[in-house]
Amino acid sequence: MDDLSDLYQDIILSHNKRPRNQGELANATGTAEGYNPLCGDHIHVYVHQDESGKVDDISFTGKACAICTASTSIMTEAVKGKSREEIDAKAAEALEMLTSKEEPTFDLLEQGDFAALAGVRQFPARIKCATLGWHTLESALKGGETVNTEKEDE
């Protein structure tokens, strides 16, 4: 398998072609916009949290590249029905996997579709495409400030 097939795995292409949890959420309790001006990725993430803070519903809309679309689609599946604590842990894992120069410390095989994104690390120019959905989720849960990959403090 060459590098490119690591990046554009069938799982990624499938999520790109048929993104899960797509559309607006009419009763959203939080929403945020994410923008990656380098690539042109532009998404909105909608969450609905119950009284306990659990995200019982989530969706997204937008125009984005395959990596961003698939990553965001996978993100919605990974966090739906999870508590805030579980989501924070999941987001930290995702961002570690996507940005760390080291091999991930957790077992990729247990991560399902999520693991398909590991190939992105070989393509530094595309990492921001993959992290945008997760950052936008964090913002939607925290108050909804627009995420712009070129205004990060990193």
């Binding site: 060459d2 590098d3 490119l4 990046l7 554009y8 001006p37 380098l38 690539c39 042109g40 990725d41 984005a64 590249c65 395959a66 990596i67 393509f123 120019a125 595309r126 495409c129």
Partner: peptide, 22 residues
């Protein structure tokens, strides 16, 4: 079928430098 950035990445792996974006 493909977003400009994905086109750019695939062409890059073939040694072809183009610009993708705005």
């Amino acid at each position: 079928s493909a977003h400009p950035h994905d086109i750019g990445t695939i062409l890059d792996t073939e040694g072809i430098a183009i610009r993708a974006g705005h």
